Simulated scan of single mutants.
Amino acid sequence: MASGPETDLPGTHLLSLPGEDDAEGILINWIHFGESDIECQARYGRTLTHKMGHYLSLLHTWGSGNCELNDYCNDTPAVDVTVFGRNSFEGCSGEFVMISNYMNYSDDEIMNIFTNNQVDRMHYVLNNHMGRNSLMSSPALEQ
């Protein structure tokens, strides 16, 4: 689970936003952190990458299931259904779904990409969100 940031970016209402007295951040079960020996589609640590995407304002590539407004990133092929597994298929306008995108529920072993617009969206949050911009100057980044 990850809380999204409240921002002026389109689609923010689709994120899991914390309430007034709620904690915010990323909660992940230890068994899904890093690589594991579990026989499942989520065993190579991509769950944290996916959840970090939500924490920095990324939506699933299918957004709310609307071909016009899916994830509000123009370089992500539009899709209006949940994306699982490892096989791509035709999305909204006959374009193949980017099955390897971290913001799908694809198998971990094939996930390997954020699009440029997704990266721009994350950078916007890191530069402009009061609670996230402190990450850029965190002492944890110092060597």
Rank of each mutant, 00 (worst) to 15 (best):
Thr49Gln: 05
Gly19Ile: 00
Ile28Arg: 00
Gly45Cys: 10
Gly65Ala: 10
Gly91Ser: 12
Leu27Cys: 09
Cys40Asp: 14
Asn70Tyr: 15
Gly34His: 04
Glu35Lys: 13
Thr49Met: 11
Gly63Trp: 05
Arg86Trp: 15
Asp8Ala: 06
Pro10Tyr: 01
Ser93Glu: 04
Ser88Thr: 05
Thr12Arg: 11
Thr82Asn: 02
Ala78Met: 11
Ala78Tyr: 10
Leu15Pro: 00
Lys51Gly: 09
Glu24Met: 08
Tyr72Gln: 09
Leu14His: 03
Cys73Arg: 09
Gly11Asp: 08
Ser16Phe: 03
Ala78Leu: 05
Ile31Gly: 03
Gly94Glu: 10
Ala42Ile: 09
Cys67Ala: 14
Lys51Trp: 06
Ser16Met: 02
Arg46Ile: 00
Leu15Asn: 03
Pro18His: 03
Asp22Gln: 02
Ser93Cys: 06
Leu27His: 13
His50Phe: 07
Asp75Val: 15
Thr76Leu: 10
Thr47His: 00
Tyr44Trp: 07
Ser16Arg: 01
Thr7Phe: 09
Trp62Ile: 08
Gln41Met: 06
Glu39Ser: 11
Glu24Arg: 02
Tyr55Leu: 03
Phe84Pro: 02
His54Gly: 11
Thr47Pro: 00
Leu69Arg: 13
Glu39Val: 08
Gly65Trp: 08
Trp62Pro: 00
Ser57Thr: 06
Asn74Ala: 15
Cys73Gly: 06
Cys73Tyr: 12
His50Met: 07
His13Ala: 14
Pro10Lys: 03
Ala78Asp: 05
Val97Asp: 02
Thr7Ala: 05
Tyr44Arg: 02
Leu59Cys: 08
Ile26Ser: 05
Gln41Gly: 09
Gly34Lys: 05
Met52Asn: 12
Ser88Val: 00
Leu9Lys: 08
Glu68Asn: 10
Ile31Cys: 00
Ser57Gln: 04
Gly53His: 00
Pro18Ala: 05
Asp71Glu: 15
Val97Tyr: 10
His13Val: 10
Thr49Arg: 06
Arg43Lys: 12
Cys92Asn: 11
Val79Glu: 12
Pro77Lys: 04
Glu24Tyr: 14
His54Trp: 09
Asp8Gly: 01
Gly25Arg: 01
Ala78Pro: 04
Val81Lys: 06
Gln41Val: 04
Val83Cys: 10
Cys40Val: 11
His32Pro: 01
Val83Ile: 06
Thr82Lys: 01
Arg46Val: 06
Gly85Ser: 08
Pro18Val: 08
Met52His: 13
Thr76Cys: 13
Ala42Phe: 15
Cys40Gln: 06
Phe96Trp: 10
Gly25Thr: 09
His54Asn: 09
Cys73Thr: 08
Phe96His: 07
Asp80Gly: 03
Asn87Ser: 10
Glu90Gln: 13
Ile28Ala: 10
Cys40Ala: 08
His50Ile: 02
Glu24His: 06
Asp21Asn: 10
Thr76His: 00
Gly53Ala: 02
Gly85Asp: 07
Trp62Cys: 13
Asn74Gln: 13
Glu24Asn: 03
Ile28Leu: 15
Ser36Gly: 11
Gly91Pro: 12
Thr47Glu: 03
Leu56Ile: 09
Met52Gln: 12
Arg43Trp: 01
Asn66Cys: 11
Thr49Ser: 11
Phe89Gln: 03
Cys73Gln: 02
Ala78Gln: 09
Asn66Ile: 12
Cys67Ser: 14
Glu39Cys: 05
